[in-house]
Amino acid sequence: MDCSQAKSLFNAFLDGELNGSLAAEFATHKLQCASCRRELALLEVMGHVLSTDTVVPELNADFTDRLMACALEPARPQRLWRRRVLYIGGPLAAAACVLLALSVFRGVPVKPETEITPQVLPFEERMDSPEAMLRQVEKARETHPESRELAALEDALRQRVAHIASGTEEGTKLLENFGKMTIMEILDSIQLDRPQEQQDAQPAANTSGVEHVPPADSL
């Protein structure tokens, strides 16, 4: 066995898939070739670090409690958007309460974060274009200028308008989708970059050994 043959078997060796006479030939070459031995050692050390360095930061102690509270709350049509607001909004609301209490003593006017509700934005209305949606958000911002969520939404929409104006294929698709979507669906798509939350929960189906070459940009 020469070096190029041995190198072509590195992955099979590391995946534990090398056996029989080929494994014996490979082991013999490894004994005789310092260069292959060194290259393989590097890959093995790398694998060793990846396997054994399992220490990560700790989850917050109240993770399960917070999750249980969300899981047991009654389902709402705008659940995902509201949940995000609640998730971030919980600590923010607590902080806002403290600031409001302090402002009473210090005379500093402090406004809490505005929760985005159907009163702030008409969730069920369909939007023909990002510009129309942008106008709705701008209108909402006029009455709720302090809302960071609305400000972020406005930024995201402006980016999409720019994307569509650039005339790319992706931009054209975005434009097509806008005609069919309600404000709520657009909000979800902006938060998740795709609207159908159910799609995430579909069980994996395609696990056959059929060769599938991934797109170049994912490699």
Binding site: N11, D15, L43, M46, A204, G209, V210, H212, P214, L219
Partner: peptide, 26 residues
């Protein structure tokens, strides 16, 4: 393959390319 919802062969391709890249960088 089940987790990433891709064929087993693609998983191996990702793993092998990842090893090659890590080796190249390290």
């Amino acid at each position: 393959a089940a987790v990433l919802d891709i064929p087993v062969a693609t998983v191996k391709s990702h793993l092998h390319r990842a090893r090659a890249r890590l080796k190249e960088w390290l």
